[in-house]
Nucleic acid binder design. Sequence first.
DNA 1: TTCAAAGCCTAACGCTCGTTTTGCAAATCT
DNA 2: AGATTTGCAAAACGAGCGTTAGGCTTTGAA
Lengths: 192, 192
Amino acid sequence: MPVAVKRKEQILGIAGNFFRERGYAATSMRHIARKVGVEPASLYSHFKSKDEILQYICFRIADEFFEMQEPILNSMSNPVEKLKRLVTGHINVIIHNLEAASVFFNEWCYLKKPELKKFIAMRERYEKGFHDVIQQGITSGDFRMTDTNFTVRLLFSVMNGVHEWYKTSGKVTPDEAGEKMSEFILEGLAIK
Amino acid sequence: MPVAVKRKEQILGIAGNFFRERGYAATSMRHIARKVGVEPASLYSHFKSKDEILQYICFRIADEFFEMQEPILNSMSNPVEKLKRLVTGHINVIIHNLEAASVFFNEWCYLKKPELKKFIAMRERYEKGFHDVIQQGITSGDFRMTDTNFTVRLLFSVMNGVHEWYKTSGKVTPDEAGEKMSEFILEGLAIK
DNA sequence: TTCAAAGCCTAACGCTCGTTTTGCAAATCT
DNA sequence: AGATTTGCAAAACGAGCGTTAGGCTTTGAA
């Protein structure tokens, strides 16, 4: 049993790598198998299909996002503080799962029917958490901007972009990146 | 001749659509041909390969980005004004070529060796334009932030995200979007 | 020690892929 | 009007795809 778990993790790791680098559609089971050091058919001892591998990667990191978000939403912080913590938390999840995050953001669309619907619903629920905080901040007069949806879009664009350019080898730690990103989002670029 | 040009454009349009919706790797020449209303082999009267279709889409919109950027960089505006115009210009190009932009941002990596290198070099040159303006703004004391590279990354994340959520059916015009995005980038979210 | 399960392999299935060859008909040019 | 290029189709190529069936070997529990 522990052997199987290890192998399963190994497959997920290698598949995630490929999915990020070449994309889901351009990655074949034979590619994955060769890198794992196993025959293609053997992968089916661990996963029912190529699609199931994608499911594991996508939904596992989704769980991490929710586990990070929940306590913050339920806390008593003000909108500014909440947003700061959400931003830092969000990009921390991304940075600590760079490959899975890339797959989560770019390859989710290859999920098949039932799981695809589930995925989209989940993502909307997660985004609603941010939406509500932004809304609170606007209502309370802490935040500029009037169009909440527009603002949420911008917010996610800034945050989610991180998986494309963050290098683990770089000198910016995840928390520093979160700090600076929060500053950018809240204070902007210009000095008044 | 004019017949061929029309067909060529039609193919580019349909291919762009597919590449955006399903991705380059998951789109086959047969898919494209069927939608065009032609046999797969006939596509090769207009393009040497599937890869060449991708090249057309990617490099054509690249030209638009440069044509927009050049006069702004050569102008005598201050950094703040330059950045505003660059942001508005950039997202205008995206919004007016939503499909091509999606391919440009997400499918460029499927370009093959010589064009891939050319593409990357081009993109770096384009990004350097933004980099220089940010640098000027920091030097002149107009901009906050100390890490120019980091700032450029955030900037592009905000701007490039637009192709994923902008709906042409929406009520926000391209120029309004540019305006509001510039405000977000420069002033941030929080009211001091 | 027995025995079922887990993990893997060989072989193959039906299918789709990008692309080429060849030829024909219509449009274009001289 | 004749010559030539253009646009398209029919047919096929070799290759790679996801996946399955069946059997062998090792492993871990009783």
